[in-house]
């Protein structure tokens, strides 16, 4: 286990560095001079040159990369080209929207998907088994932004029970208002996420239901529910755990799109604006933070999976 931990940690660190390289290269290979974005209409060639020096984009790529890595290591993500304000604090300021949104949507999705998925598998012979399955099929085919659009229309514009978008000026200082403005986005992301989770849970449960040990347990006199509860869930949890980590990342991505539907001041909005304004320190910063998060979550998911399944503790 310790050897595995070491190996997996090494892979994580390597991945982080490699991700930084990929990100840097992708962004620098793209056309367009960031100095343009920095200067307003009417800039002279001298001003552009000065701006490039100020940005450091006149240095060779390798130098730029090392400088950037050094900055990142000291948690300095650079300054926005458009606002000339530092990127790091801006990202931090966006977290109180994106993190609660992602986590609550994830928790809601899991709370819905696990029972529904198990039901869809164990009650395939009842009327609601196939119905639940069909709903899940529908759920994974629906684009999140469309769900958001429909929810806004019904709950905000027609019924007037929830805000259509935005976040209160006081943020979480105005807890009620902040929570309200997250209800529809959370439901949107959770609906779409739970649909694909239901399919994983259902499939994992089916695999366990058909396994020999469960049939043995039944043969030894346990009721189906008891057998599943005592022996099945832990086994079904193994593939689901691996998927959960990945789903958390996907939830975050869902949040990025849904934030723009609900006009929420989160990371997604920052990223979309950064892209449309060619503000590459912002894009770079947001992407770096999100990729690192995804990698770390994947790492934790793998560890959890190891702990849950003794069979996997040997290298396959």
């Amino acid at each position: 286990m310790i050897a595995y931990l070491l190996r997996r940690t090494a892979i994580l660190l390597g991945s982080l560095v490699l991700a930084a390289v990929v990100l840097f290269v992708l962004l620098r290979l793209l056309p367009g001079d960031p100095a343009n974005a920095l200067l307003g209409v009417g800039a002279t060639p001298e001003q552009i040159e000065a701006a490039r020096r100020e940005l450091g984009t006149d240095a060779p790529l390798a130098t730029q990369f090392l400088r950037w890595l050094a900055d990142v290591a000291t948690l300095d993500l650079g300054k926005s080209l458009v606002s000339s304000l530092p990127v790091g604090p801006e990202i931090v300021a966006r977290l109180p929207v994106t993190v609660p949104l992602t986590l609550s949507a994830f928790v809601v999705a899991v709370l819905v998907a696990v029972p529904v998925g198990v039901l869809a598998a164990t009650r395939a012979d009842r009327w609601y088994g196939p119905v639940l399955n069909a709903i899940a099929q529908l759920g994974i085919a629906v684009p999140a932004f469309w769900v958001g659009l429909l929810l806004i229309t019904v709950f905000a514009l027609r019924l007037r029970v929830l805000p259509a978008g935005g976040f209160p000026p006081d943020g979480w200082g105005d807890f009620g208002a902040a929570a309200q403005s997250l209800v529809l986005p959370v439901v949107t992301v959770a609906l779409v996420m739970s649909a694909s989770l239901i399919r994983y849970v259902r499939s994992a449960t089916l695999d366990v239901l058909g396994s020999d040990f469960l049939r043995t347990a039944r043969a030894l006199g346990a009721s189906p529910a008891q057998a599943l509860w005592r022996h099945g869930l832990r086994n079904a949890a193994v593939p689901v755990l691996a998927v959960l980590a990945m789903e958390l990342a996907t939830t975050f991505l869902g949040a990025v799109v849904v934030e723009s539907v609900f006009a929420l001041p989160g990371l997604g909005g920052l990223l979309t604006r950064g892209i449309s304004q060619h503000d590459y320190p912002v894009v770079q910063g947001v992407m770096l933070v999100s990729t690192a998060t995804v990698l770390v979550v994947g790492f934790l998911g793998d560890l959890a999976q190891r702990l849950a399944d003794p069979r996997l503790r040997v290298r396959p």
Partner: peptide, 12 residues
């Protein structure tokens, strides 16, 4: 950043 979200805010 989106006119629809802005109008929805006024409507609500």
């Amino acid at each position: 950043t989106d006119a629809t979200a802005l109008n929805n805010a006024l409507l609500t």
